[in-house]
Design a protein around this nucleic acid. Structure first.
Length: 434
DNA sequence: TCTGGGGTCCTAGGACCC
DNA sequence: TCTGGGGTCCTAGGACCC
């Protein structure tokens, strides 16, 4: 039986989330900005039509924005995560095999599904009708528009989704399996090679130098040649383009092997005490994520850097990896290590733009190695203190209890000029009909 | 004035070992 | 004058993704 892998992708996800609660944004050019209102991370169709690129710095667009009345919103991840969960939960009903690939994308294995869905003999378009049913239901129950691509491999499913989005005549659902080989190749010949999942900017220009410009040309390239020039990853992509599924659906997300927490500051920071507050805040977040996945970290890296875009300023960047005496998820021990590292790398006289921490050598909490010096009582005390801390912050709101060192005024914290309410997760901010 | 944040995987090269 | 071969582990950096 033909493999049928679907990729469901929410349209302009963050913008769609905002529009759901602010209908006045419908039909208007809207962007959602990254932290610090730095870059464009989501664009409405109207904004895409104006030629605004993903990741464009907002300050460079101010002029265009004024001319066309572009509305810019700060990102509201609490809202997006909640709506994402609702979409993903709905999707999980339509296949036993789901991989949640990102906040706005999910793979579903639909192999053999159409037969059980359609009454009577299955036709080439019965999977298309199944996908249209999913689309309508998501639109109705959550309010988010999605597109669906279906194909025998994940890489092709991504492309099918791209086609569903770009070409009106497919009505947001594109099933490569329902096409003839000739039809499909004719379609692939129209798509630029850079659209392929796994082909980034660097590979695109090198492929073009080799005379490979379209998806079809990459599909028909010699695998051995691709392997020699680019390595095993792109060779696998070529196989996937030929309908050979090399990438399985990962339906269980493995625990993270590294946990990063870093932020740019709202204003440049020069003083060590401010950096210390930021590092404590970031380490606290990272430790929460670590405990959430029931893990311990064996090391923590701390880094600081100046603004590389301000070339006239003196530049400095440094990182320090601190091994921990034993693997831990105790915020206090992690902060202590991180602060030690920060004080080693800090140099006065620079305008720092960003700091971050990264937890490494992560192991499951159940795999804690035994040592001669184990202080079991202290470990238990730490575990129950951290559990209490997490419980209070979960119930009363993040940051209700924190280390004093994180500071209260936080004059380094980021700018978020125009953030919408947390309409679905905070009692004070619920959307109510008026 | 103003340029995000958080991940994964692969490869090359060095250190080290027998 | 001439100085092996093969393996592992670790790290840094590159490329890519959303």
């Amino acid at each position: 039986m033909q493999r049928a892998i679907a990729l469901i992708d929410c349209n302009n996800f963050y913008v769609s989330c905002e529009r759901l609660f602010q209908p006045r944004l419908e039909g208007k050019p809207v962007v959602v900005l990254s932290n610090n209102d730095g870059c464009v991370v989501s664009r409405s169709q109207e904004v895409k039509d104006l030629g605004v690129k993903m990741g464009a710095p907002w300050f460079q667009l101010k002029d265009l924005a004024r001319r066309h009345g572009i509305i810019a919103l700060s990102s509201n991840y609490t809202l997006y995560a909640d709506l994402s969960n609702r979409v993903m939960r709905l999707l999980s009903q339509w296949s036993p095999d789901q991989e949640i690939y990102s906040i706005d994308e999910s793979f579903l294995d639909l192999t053999g599904i159409a037969e059980s869905f359609s009454i009577g003999p299955s036709s080439p378009d019965s999977l298309t009708r199944y996908a249209q049913h999913m689309r309508r239901t998501i639109r109705q129950c959550v309010g988010i528009p999605v597109c669906v691509g279906i194909a025998p491999s994940k890489t092709l499913a991504k492309l099918a989704n791209h086609v569903a989005k770009k070409q009106q005549r497919y009505d947001s659902v594109c099933d490569f399996n329902a096409m003839s080989a000739m039809e499909l190749d004719a379609l692939l010949a129209q798509i630029e090679v850079g659209e392929v999942w796994g082909v980034g900017r660097r590979s695109t220009s090198r492929l073009q130098q080799m005379g490979i410009n379209t998806v079809l040309e990459l599909k028909q390239a010699q695998p051995a040649r691709i392997r020699a020039e680019f390595g095993v990853v792109l060779e696998r992509t070529v196989a996937e383009l030929n309908g050979v599924a090399c990438l399985e659906l990962d339906d269980v997300t493995p625990p993270r092997q590294q946990i990063i927490c870093s932020r740019s500051f709202g204003v440049p920071v020069s003083l060590l005490p401010d950096l210390e507050q930021a590092v404590i805040a970031y380490t606290t977040r990272a430790a929460e994520k670590l405990r959430h996945q029931h893990s311990l970290a064996g090391g923590i890296q701390v880094y600081i850097r100046t603004n590389p875009h301000k070339e006239s300023d003196p530049q400095y960047q440094q990182a320090r990896l601190l091994p921990l005496f034993e693997p831990t998820n105790d915020t206090r021990l992690l902060c202590h290590a991180a602060l030690g590292g920060l004080r080693q790398i800090y140099r006065s006289g620079y305008a720092y733009q960003k700091a971050g921490v990264m937890l490494t050598e992560i192991i499951p909490a159940t795999a804690r190695p035994r040592t001669l010096f184990d202080d079991v009582a202290a470990q238990q005390k730490s575990a129950s203190l951290m559990a209490t801390l997490d419980r209070i912050n979960r119930r009363m709101g993040s940051g209700t209890m924190q280390l004093l060192g994180e500071g209260v005024s936080k004059n380094w914290s980021m700018r978020r000029g125009n953030m919408s309410q947390r309409y679905t997760t905070e009692w004070d901010e619920l959307a109510v009909a008026r």
